[in-house]
């Protein structure tokens, strides 16, 4: 969701609504992404919003790509 929509800045409620799910259903995924550092949190007025850390997202994608490359080379050997 966030990788495909990197400019999404919303509350957890808002994110859940946009994916057609309830807050309870998405909260654990959001927490996990916050712990990984892929998502960041910020206070806007009275609301807490979440959004993608673009550089962290890029970094993670690169490390996954590198890992897959290593696995593939290892398999070929």
């Amino acid at each position: 969701m966030f990788h495909r929509n990197p400019g999404l800045i919303d509350t957890v409620d808002g994110v859940a609504r946009r994916v057609g799910r309830t807050t309870i259903a998405v909260i654990s995924d959001v927490r996990e992404l916050l712990q990984l550092g892929v998502l960041k949190q910020k206070r806007i007025g009275n609301s807490e919003v979440v959004f993608l850390d673009r550089s962290k997202d890029r970094e993670l994608l690169e490390s996954v790509a590198n890992h897959l490359k290593t696995v593939r080379i290892g398999g070929e050997k």
């Binding site: 999404l8 509350t11 808002g14 946009r18 806007i44 007025g45 009275n46």
Partner: peptide
């Protein structure tokens, strides 16, 4: 992409 209510929040940090 955001909610209109967040755009209207007027704390020290704007969206």
């Amino acid at each position: 992409c955001t909610s209109p209510s967040l755009m209207l929040e007027s704390g020290s940090d704007s969206l």
